[in-house]
Amino acid sequence: MAAGAAPRPRVTADQLRKRRSRSLKEEVIRLSLLGSALVSVFVSVGIVSVLLGEALPFFGEVSVSEFVTGTTWTPLLEPRHFGVLPLVGGTLLVAAIAALLAVPVGSLAALYLSEYASPRVRRRLKPTLEILAGVPTVVYGTFALAVVTPTLQAILPDVRVFNALSAGIVVGIMILPMVASLSDDALRAVPQSLRNAGYGVGATKREISLGIVYPAAFSGVISSYLLAISRAIGETMIVAMAAGSTPRLTLNPLESIQTMTGYIVQVSLGDTPAGSIEFQSIFAVGLGLFLMTLAMNLLSQKIMARFRETYS
């Protein structure tokens, strides 16, 4: 034993016991952090209960079957009709146009980024594309009105001032970076060995990209499509500004239509008293919107989880 080492009293159980003062402080901190984490629970419960709370009285007046199957939406005019299909149809028309633009262009961009671009080019192009995702939707709306619609009118004289096509194209541009970026992530998760197998039998890059990589990443890519389309369905400002406010069940993209979100904005711009059927109707429409986007998001997450399981 080293000389001069100060002998120390042995540790006692008392010294190892939990101290009330410190445990209390640590516990207060833990509980407040837990409280912050639980805010997400309150928000989720809040959204569902607010939508249900206002939509249930609405369904007391309008039957669910009339709401879901009705083809006339005239909530502000007598005789009132609350058939939501024209709004759903408008929403889906815009989302379909957006998807027709964003899915092929976004997928090709993702294939370029993951299979062709050098790391240097990738590092520059991807953030530039992501700027598109950060542009506020009200700016996209202004862009639709100021640039896209006049351009369309110059090409097709039948295009109305407010129309589904212009809104759909701009929504497509908005969700394009989402498709490209998420699909790129999925494509790059495909192991290099699969590509090498393709090169080994003398395949070209295109044959490998389309024949091997894209199919191998398909579930991940699909998940990105779903997420982007869900975003298109919930998009509000572009459609409120550019698609019009004419609830109409039509497949003609040159006409003015109204989407679910567009209707909600239209009503909230007016001075609708709380408790009136118009006020409640936006919550019924909101509930429908919530269920549609939630279903797509959940499906997307589920497919993505399976994709991650395959390659990890």
Binding site: S40, V43, S44, I47, L51, L227, S230, R231, I233, G234, E235, T236, T261, I264, V265, G286, L289, F290, T293, L294, N297
Partner: peptide
């Protein structure tokens, strides 16, 4: 929650 449309 990250995927809920902002209007909601």
């Amino acid at each position: 929650l990250a995927g809920v449309p902002s209007i909601l």
